[in-house]
Design a protein around this nucleic acid. Sequence first.
RNA 1: GGCGGCGUAGCUCAGUGGUAGAGCAGGAGAAUCAUAAUCUCUUGGCCGGGGGUUCAAGUCCCUCCGCCGCUACCA
Length: 651
Amino acid sequence: MRKQKTFYITTPIYYVNDVPHIGHAYTTIAADVLARYKRLRGYETFFLTGTDEHGQKVQQAAVKQGLDPQAHADRMVTAFKELWKRLTISNSDFVRTTEDRHKWIVQYVLRELKDRNLLYQAAYEGWYCLPDERFWAGNEVVDGKCPECGRPVEHISESNYFFKMSAYRDRLIQHIRKHPGFIQPESRRNEVLGFLDRPLEDLCISRPRARLSWGIPFPFDPDYVTYVWVDALVNYISVPGYGSDDRRFKKWWPADIHLVGKDILTTHAVYWSTLLMALGLDLPKTLFAHGWWTVNGEKMSKSLGNVVDPNAMAAEYGTDAFRYFLLREVPFGQDGDFSKQAMTGRYNSELANDLGNLFSRTLTMIEKYSGGAVPKPHPKAVKADDRRMAARAGKLYKSVGGEMDRFAFHRALLEIWTLVDSANRYVEQNAPWDLAKDPKKRPRLDTVLYHLAETIRILAIYLFPFMPTTAQRMITEIGSTAQLDHALKPWDYQWGKLKPARAVQKGRPLFPRMEAPATIPKQETVASATLSKEIRMESTQTEPSLITIDDFRKLELRVGRVVTAEKVAGADKLLKLSVDIGTETRQIVAGIAKKYIPEELIGKSVILIANLKPAVIRGIESRGMILAAGDKEVEALATFIEPVQPGLRVK
RNA sequence: GGCGGCGUAGCUCAGUGGUAGAGCAGGAGAAUCAUAAUCUCUUGGCCGGGGGUUCAAGUCCCUCCGCCGCUACCA
């Protein structure tokens, strides 16, 4: 008997310091798509996700809320579990690092490392910021101050356990060179190799209990808890049975793929790989680092208040449409931008118009012209056009499979859409409404309608990993009894398997068209973007990055009208402006000369911070500041949609 | 600073040394089964600048400009 093919896929376990956002959703959805795809193709699949619950930040967050760390973690875990349910995530298990089954194995791993003589005790030295309870590397410290809070740091030395990571540097480099697919995408692989070009140091894997108690105790030294990364990474082997169930562990390890965000690639590529080497275990077959999402072109952050809530998106667009967008919009591995405009654009044109409408028109025609049952095709009425459709559908098995196996989700969807597009063209070219007018053309009409129905059945199979609910609906409404959350037989993918004569059941549109979001007036985005930038600067000082309305009120923002503008001699970026703010005319120096020529600014309304401390720039006094969008270079001045009086308060 | 990558249509990007492409957006038309959804045709490029190799360069080499990523022990 042939051995059952297996597939083991993981997401990172998510740190419970944060509520789930689009980044968490992205990784997990991608993993779910792969898991469903593999199951459909007959692989026994183990799909693991979970939560990482120990460590300093969790402890701090819990203390802040007056909670026990475990209680805090319990609360956060619910948010993740509920989100995965809502996003139809089909994980096989959900691990929490606070569970005994995991803690136990982490201790087993530590003992194993100790027995193999791979641990030693030494002093960990570094600059420590006491209020932040955080270490900083020498090059991160700015003038002896903490780069995060600006308070002085002290050089301290504490005893810790170190893992002899440095010993594995060469082996790891060799492994990465020998297995080009180990780290993907290739650019990330190069980064890791670049990282390994430099000396690799040993890894400090303990924390003194006196400083941090929320962690897994060292089994052989009660004064220490385990460094969270070691704790967390071990989940990939603790759950499938390392140290507890050899047979099960052999079945699943090495993992086929660890899916991670690009921010945690190094920890996986280096810490995890060397730990596995130390334990004498195989490395995972693939480590794939995907990109990050920005929102409306901006970095997502709490202080900007633009964090995308996956729950809200699923509620607004539907889970399947949200899943589709995330995987279709951006080549997997690259960064992407999320915006409601882009989301709605793809939703309407690809899901509602192309796919949803194809489905709708097909079912309607079967109802109208065929009494509501899938007609039987007539062999003699089959034409070249039909054979082309069947051939196109047949090609998807390989082409979609190839792209999926390369983790090129957007290309897999493009492949699937070639069939959607062909089907819409097929409808136009064969015009069933014309065939229906002539009873003699009945065989041809039946054949055309069957081909459309069968195309939909096949589309549903390929769409299932991406949009499970929609795909199953398509299958059911077209009159098939197939269940897509099970492995299909190879012949199920073949043309002609849809049984005729079954009644179709047309339901609500798959994807009702949506109103495009009103385009955000440019000025509005600009103003808020620039404002937030100011706020961001301040907010890095304090722990909760939100400001209160009172903080905001400290800014005296006023409408100004530019009266004169001239270049500042000897400075290529500066303009000297005089700005009418109603009660007076202010002289302001602004760094906008690369973008605007002085003449075109005269008469323009701008937003001015009126209570900014005056500054002297290039010997010219500047009393205030005008708002503009841009990071390093100014891209646009903030102004107003309606004409406004100078001096008016902006709030 | 070091290492790596990118710069092609309004936007997002594809492009093995051999006549510059797709999707979206824009323009024109056809059709009426369909969620006004579809289908056909179409406008639009000093391929970042300069230099070189070659019969031939978006593609190879050099250089400049611009943008981005990595540069570990908080997760």
